[in-house]
Deep mutational scan, measured.
Amino acid sequence: LVRYRTISKIPQITLNFVDLKGDPFLASPTSDREIIAPKIKERTHNVTEKVTQVLSLGADVLPEYKLQAPRIHRWTILHYSPFKAVWDWLILLLVIYTAVFTPYSAAFLLKETEEGPPATECGYACQPLAVVDLIVDIMFIVDILINFRTTYVNANEEVVSHPGRIAVHYFKGWFLIDMVAAIPFDLLIFGSGSEELIGLLKTARLLRLVRVARKLDRYSEYGAAVLFLLMCTFALIAHWLACIWYAIGNMEQPHMDSRIGWLHNLGDQIGKPYNSSGLGGPSIKDKYVTALYFTFSSLTSVGFGNVSPNTNSEKIFSICVMLIGSLMYASIFGNVSAIIQRLYSGTARYHTQMLRVREFIRFHQIPNPLRQRLEEYFQHAWSYTNGIDMNAVLKGFPECLQADICLHLNRSLLQHCKPFRGATKGCLRALAMKFKTTHAPPGDTLVHAGDLLTALYFISRGSIEILRGDVVVAILGKNDIFGEPLNLYARPGKSNGDVRALTYCDLHKIHR
């Protein structure tokens, strides 16, 4: 019993810090008490220290592992850092350059016999395009090294910054494609005289377009951006097909006994025919423009016929181009109408809503002055909100995010209106959640004399007048207030005048 009563005193000691020596009952000389009392004092002292730490809000209350900052290894790049964003855009520009100039170089340097010394005699450094290609190869190699040090988000939505895990993730992902696209074939085969082989191998750079397509997928929600990307894709495919079309004609031209190829026909049409040795002929500019003209006309199913396939190889390629053109029509131009419709969806919704308003007016036989006010209010409210119901949009977000959005939407009023000066951010967040926005066209009466005042109004834009009878008592403008002081009276009061809008007004109100 003594032991039980001794232990039962522990909660009292913990909360009230009572010393055991003052209790005459606990001072009985028993061996059990002498053993338990020192333990009680020690526990009391420890609990006292913990309570003191909690009340003082000291940093040592938290466990040590929670006080440590997340460790980022040296030379690790955050995937959302500004440097990584700028670097990704730079790589994107280099990939676009590669997609345009690599097929052009591979096709127009394929057994090209233009006048001038061969590239091997001039030297590697004197070729501007080769120098640019070398810079692109170096940048792609540097990009691989950067990807080995860039964080990523795993399946659990955690940012991984450990170098080993980053390397394994990159090896399992895009490393092989990036490595093949970054191989400097110019340096590996330079001086061997195989410019045709170098041009063909350099087309491996186009593998990076797969990554670019995935990154550009984030802009699919913007109709104008999608339309622009589709047109660029169409032009890029036409450019690639033009390079292939020229390569076919250029390879067949020296081996044909009869002059029936499209390059021969082009030379005869523009007065620059090929001679018996295969030299001469149109310039590279004429060849490229004509090839691009043929691919565009074939892809769009126009086909004027002034550039036509004559050999079997050219006919087979033309059939493939027609098939590609039909697929592009289905996948690209078939979506253009939907994209344009999405661009004008706001206008369509406006006309639909206006039609419903006019049908309501016609069905209920609203008189002319009231009908005009109804239409003007709808037009003004639509121009202010673009038909978007803010309350319906915010309803799907958590309250903390709703408060931040409301604070942002009402920031101008909260910053410049005098009653809100000096208020804490928590108070402003709470008030912003209570605001209701209303609009009024010129001549609209917001409050009639004798109406119950259940709200306090803040003028965000425009001006109003307060009338008693036919006498203008006051004219209020931006950041002015009218209405009933909230919670100042037990019952809502009545208006002693009319409140009429002089201009288009936007008002925020808080109800009782």
Rank of each mutant, 00 (worst) to 15 (best):
L201F: 07
F304R: 01
S81P: 01
I144C: 04
R342T: 09
S313Q: 04
P103R: 01
C406S: 08
H79P: 02
E376K: 15
A69W: 12
A182E: 05
A242I: 01
R421F: 06
E64F: 01
P118V: 07
L93F: 09
L129I: 03
I91P: 01
A403F: 01
A403E: 12
E121H: 15
L374Y: 01
W245R: 01
L229F: 11
N156R: 09
P184F: 01
Y222G: 05
F378C: 13
H439M: 07
F175Y: 01
A238S: 01
Y288S: 01
G281T: 03
K418Q: 06
K272A: 01
A167W: 01
V168K: 15
T352E: 12
H448E: 07
A155V: 11
A247H: 01
L227R: 01
S220I: 09
P70F: 10
S297K: 01
V132D: 01
V136Y: 02
L409E: 03
R218M: 09
W240D: 01
G223M: 03
Y384F: 06
L370F: 02
D286K: 01
C400E: 09
I141S: 05
F175D: 01
D404E: 03
L200A: 04
M256L: 15
R71S: 10
A182S: 04
G261Q: 02
V160T: 06
R211H: 01
K436H: 07
A119E: 08
N410S: 09
A167V: 05
S383P: 08
A204F: 13
F304P: 04
W89D: 01
N335K: 12
G443E: 01
T424L: 02
D217S: 05
E314W: 01
P254A: 15
I177W: 10
G271M: 03
S412L: 06
H239C: 01
V132C: 14
F140E: 01
A430W: 08
S276V: 04
N410H: 13
T352S: 10
K172S: 04
D186K: 14
H351T: 05
E252N: 04
E359N: 08
C243P: 01
N391C: 03
L176G: 12
R165N: 05
P367Q: 09
F175K: 01
L197H: 04
